[in-house]
Design a protein around this nucleic acid. Structure first.
Lengths: 147, 147
DNA sequence: TCAGATACTTGATCCAATCAAGCATGCATC
DNA sequence: GATGCATGCTTGATTGGATCAAGTATCTGA
């Protein structure tokens, strides 16, 4: 199990609550991935493949190096969870698609990763709206202040 | 930059907001660590060393193998950020403490990791309370339902 | 046609995580 | 106080992720 993100010595209840939540989310994600024999990175990549997509595009979306994608996709391909196929117009490029197995495995992963669903389910509709509003506002606070 | 935790194909606004928040938090943490020349795991471990603590205890707190801690601490020690010293009563055990450098570097990390502070700062006191309540309630929802 | 950009791969390096094995020390019991 | 087991930590091996530099094939625009 990976080491947790934080805790910073949380100086307020709000910071502590945020950390606890993030930590629980991350751990749940990792646990669900492991249950399906996937690493976090593999689960994440598999989750992005809802449409045909090139390696470059995938790397950009995930904000990482293309060679990182190459190796992750290679491991998934070795397990027949994804396939690389030629791009129709650009022979440099490869389109990645999930196989049926890949789709099934990812569905199993989502089922395992009950965290977000369970969390939401414990809130009333109104509370959900409130949470969305607050999280977005909190996030907004992190965008400019350091510029 | 590490691949993001998620997104699961978020089926509700609330799930999406949670993911976005967690992802932003994790990325901010990683960025702040990198700015100080630390890995995420190293920053995390350094953050735990607010008191003298043994390797075993640290491994238990972080939920990982003791040998994992050994190597992380060794790297930190090689940079003079922490020191291992003998346990007064148990000669098997080592107490880890931060050096002054380690303390200073971690302070710099916390300064870099403005995420939680900025997020909180954008909320009124009442909103902060609401957020804490909602996050805790959401977290509670993830505890039993699968048992 | 040619120069430079782009898409991907390969190989190297570093780090984190995990496992098995090993060493020294502590502890309980005989 | 000797024996056997538990505990705390380290070492070595292996796997995987992230990053970087370099290389190949292909595309694009001048």
């Amino acid at each position: 199990m990976a080491v947790p993100t934080g805790p910073v010595t949380a100086s307020t209840d709000a910071e502590r609550a945020m950390f606890d939540f993030v930590d629980a989310y991350d751990r749940a994600y990792e646990t669900a991935a492991l249950e399906q024999g996937l690493s976090v990175a593999q689960a994440c990549v598999l989750g992005r493949l809802t449409r045909e997509i090139g390696m470059r595009e995938l790397a950009d979306e995930l904000g990482c190096d293309a060679s990182n994608i190459t190796q992750i996709i290679s491991r998934l391909e070795a397990r027949d969870l994804v396939r690389r196929r030629p791009h129709p117009n650009d022979r440099r490029s490869r389109q990645i698609v999930r196989t049926d197995e890949g789709i099934a495995l990812y569905a199993a992963f989502e089922k395992s990763f009950a965290f977000a669903r369970s969390a939401v389910a414990n809130l009333t509709a109104h509370e959900q709206d409130q949470l969305v509003t607050l999280l977005r506002k909190a996030l907004d606070g992190t965008r400019e202040p350091n510029r």
